[in-house]
Design a protein around this nucleic acid. Structure first.
Lengths: 327, 327
DNA sequence: GGCCACTATGACAACGTTGTCCCCCAGCGG
DNA sequence: CCGCTGGGGGACAACGTTGTCATAGTGGCC
């Protein structure tokens, strides 16, 4: 900026006026300045600007589990979209389900003075965020609630979803319905397990420990589990898969198997309708989740300081065939 | 920082020493300072730090087409991974194939003084980046080359891929092979068309204009096109789909159709092997692409100033069934 | 001519850090 | 007692901006 000023033969302040479209600069002066800017390839330093103005940095931080997972990349897309409309950039990072990494990312973002933080919690401890929140950085948790702070949270109806899945399968005559869930310390996994259990009880088919296999899962553990479920004394005739990854593992394990159990998967996924049989799922909308959370964040930035809200988005069962197989 | 200094009864510089682990601070002083930091919830302002030190901002900018697309979210994941190893954060944005938006994002990132820029070009004009590049910001283009600047570029072997697809189909007896590609002004679409044409010529089946339908495509345009290809005088017996989205549109259009043409899709995708028939694809690795580009970027940041490189990553045909259907 | 209002511009401080340089003081050798 | 050394700490400037206020010039009006 100094160089521009020298080249244009004006003071640095006048350059500032020009780049900020402030009134009161003579057109011919402005032109000289613009020419100098162009010649030198000057671009104003946003960090310095924000520092001086004490204003927003125009960024929001997004901590999620893994951008590579289509579910979270859908969330990311929605967040980006809304942020763009509000003139913000998104800084993001994947925690890989590691609480330490989540914390590291979140605090790093705070050091960068993001205007707000969107977090898919990996851990259960979020008191480390209390100073930041008290200092005025709004934080919204999504997909899972924070462990030990009260804060805005956007969830999906995990319990309702699995209740519905079990109910649906039971209505089609299944009485031995298995549940393959993620690691039980993950909030959503645990909730879905609760929903499964409640669904079983409501359907009058009882809750049987041996039909549940919580993760972490990989392709081979799922295959082994399905094998066990199939060969037990009273085999499972239906399976509820606890998330999109597990659903895929189940599908892989069942490929080529003649007697397939019925299947309902939590999370919708592309091509679910083109498989044979098409996969019945508990669908919810990643972009709705991202949008709801980001909207909430911006409401806070706009000065909304009502008590923390907890939003629960609905899920819906999409029957496609795999869950309608008769026992 | 001022407040911390006052509370700890030291000068602001001593606080700085403590937060930077600089030597020469008495342990008891350091302890007082740390207590004050904790009490006040102080977190140092990275913008100010970077401004003062004139050093890197510790961020890299990533402009891609759409994080929501699994291919690009795979790229994003890889970029994040490497950036993390090198202590950088990733700021990203989706251009939605809009050159103006791409430019806006890239320049915004430059204003934020990112250490480097990774761009999936949406347009063909990138001279707007010349000042930045001359000012020392390394830029790497990925998936597609820049329009009018020489710069590091990482591509996949688009031509080789479609040549192979056509060769494969011809080897299975197909002589009427159609190509459904994206909008021809997109570099990859155009290259793949060239590969298709070359493949046809090499296979001795000739290039026929009426078998080509370039986009932009959506589900219904693909359906219409397939209809046309099926009912023409000499119907197409095989289809090459130009990218993952088009492949999915083709699959949807063919769902339930009795006489399906053979199909080879460009880009691999999850569950391709579980469809019936399983989908033969030209596979390449999103994370390899992201990794190669990011490695190149960091090499530049490490001072490598050899002439711009162009890296072309290999693709490989993965036969799964849909391309091996006999005519 | 003197004064006013107004326009165009500049000088300077400040944002929150850190690098440089300087000071104070205790301990020690001569 | 003096001077030197070294550890611990502070004052101040500077990074690149922008907000505040001041100033110089210009034209109009009494």
């Amino acid at each position: 900026m100094n160089d521009v000023a020298r080249l244009a033969g004006v003071s640095i302040k006048t350059v500032s006026r020009v780049v900020n479209d402030e009134p009161g600069v003579h057109p011919s002066t402005a032109e000289r300045v613009l020419a100098a800017i162009d010649q030198l390839g000057f671009r104003r330093n946003l960090s310095a600007r924000n520092l001086r103005r004490g204003s927003s940095t125009g960024t929001i931080g997004l901590v999620l589990e893994d951008v590579g997972n289509p579910f979270y990349s859908g969330v990311t897309r929605a967040v980006e979209e809304i942020a763009r409309l509000r003139g913000r950039q998104v800084i993001s990072g994947s925690s890989d389900e590691d609480p330490g990494r989540e914390r590291e990312l979140a605090l790093e973002f705070c050091s960068r003075r993001v205007d707000g933080l969107l977090i898919v919690p990996a851990g259960l401890q979020h008191s480390y965020l209390v100073p930041e929140m008290r200092a005025g950085t709004p934080v919204v948790f999504l997909d899972r609630p924070a462990g030990d702070v009260v804060a805005d949270t956007v969830l999906v109806d995990n319990i309702g979803g699995t209740v519905e899945a079990v109910t649906h399968l039971a209505a089609h005559g299944h009485r031995r319905i298995a549940f393959l869930g993620d690691a039980p310390d993950i909030f959503t996994a645990n909730e879905r397990l609760r929903g499964y259990r409640e669904g079983c009880v409501r359907a009058g088919i009882g809750y049987h420990e041996e039909l549940v296999a919580m993760g972490p899962h990989d392709e081979s553990s799922v295959a082994t589990t399905l094998q066990r479920l199939h060969t037990m004394r009273e085999p499972a005739t239906a399976v509820v898969a606890g998330n999109n990854r597990i659903t895929v593992y189940v599908l892989r394990a069942l490929a080529g198997v003649a007697e397939r159990p019925a299947l309902v998967g939590f999370d919708d996924f592309e091509l679910a309708d083109l498989l044979s049989p098409p996969v019945t799922v508990i669908a919810h909308d990643a972009s709705a989740l991202g949008k709801a959370a980001t909207d909430l964040l911006f409401a806070r930035l706009d000065g909304d300081n009502s008590p923390p809200r907890r939003v629960v988005l609905p899920v819906r069962l999409v029957p496609r065939g795999s869950g309608e197989v008769h026992a």
